[in-house]
């Protein structure tokens, strides 16, 4: 990865990160450094630990051992550190997780109002601007249930952006969507990638990974098997497991 690192500032550093669920070892000593402005696609078979790894990065899952530094802050049980990190790291979920009882506008404006103590008018003006950016300003007064899956996921992206995060984590953002809605979400993500925000995207969208990502990580059985550019991975994968996975995925589409 030397070629990708030159001149970039590290923003997430994971060292020997381990995580077990009962007797199942989900992460077996994962090492990875992510740099500012980098768009990383994380791929791999189901149960390979890629989502678990993403979720340890803002402590939705606590890692059992190893260390994670986000923007120089150690991620541990210290709530102050955790709050500081969660302000810097936004997350977009597979199942959107929009707040069902709040309007679209309120969904986006809530966190700045509560966490950053932004005045309501200012937070809502900003929320509206973000909704405009994802093409949903006209839906601001509706409720999540009234929107399609693709629209909900675009709102979820706007909601994460409202906190001005340095890093955005995407946990299979298009996996729960009907095929015709995948593209509208990918379009928003593509636009984001060009703004220079750091993105980590767990995905099965190989086309997106290849086109947008600067870097691609292949997870297998709780460890990183390959870590290279998309070009390298898709044209000359180093491992048999990767080849097998890629051919499976190709057949699947």
């Amino acid at each position: 990865m030397e070629s990708l690192q030159s001149g970039l500032k590290p923003i997430i550093e994971a060292r020997e990160v381990c995580k077990r669920f009962g007797s199942f070892e989900a992460l077996k000593g994962v090492n990875a450094t992510f740099y500012e402005g980098q768009v990383t696609a994380i791929i791999g078979p189901s149960g390979s630990g890629k989502s678990t790894f993403l979720r340890t990065l803002n402590r939705l899952e606590a890692h059992d051992s190893g260390s994670i530094l986000v923007d120089g802050i150690e991620l541990n049980d210290d709530l102050k550190n955790l709050d500081a990190i969660r302000r810097e790291v936004g997350m977009v979920f597979q199942s959107f997780n929009l707040f069902a009882h709040l309007s679209i506008l309120r969904n986006v404006a809530l966190a700045p109002m509560r966490v950053r103590k932004t005045p309501k008018a200012e937070a809502e003006a900003k929320a509206l601007a973000l909704l405009e950016r994802v093409g949903l300003a006209d839906q601001a007064n509706k409720y999540p249930i009234q929107l399609s899956g693709g629209q909900q996921q675009r709102v979820a992206i706007a909601r994460a952006l409202a906190m001005d995060p340095k890093v955005l984590l995407f946990d299979e953002p298009t996996s729960a969507l009907d095929p015709e809605m995948v593209n509208e979400v990918l379009a928003v993500m593509r636009e984001l990638a060009y703004t220079g925000i750091t993105m980590l995207v767990v995905t099965h969208e190989m086309g997106f990974a290849r086109e947008v990502a600067d870097r691609i990580i292949f997870f297998d059985r709780g460890a990183i098997l390959e870590d290279c550019t998309p070009e390298q991975l898709f044209t000359q994968p180093a491992h048999e497991r990767t080849k097998a996975f890629l051919s499976q995925v190709k057949h699947g589409f």
């Binding site: 969660r86 302000r87 929009l98 707040f99 966190a111 509560r114 966490v115 909601r159 906190m163």
Partner: peptide, 20 residues
Amino acid sequence: GQVEAARALGLSPLQTFLDI
């Protein structure tokens, strides 16, 4: 998922409980 989304946005446990 509602709790996770709120916590990931930086809301405290109390805010998550009261607001969400």
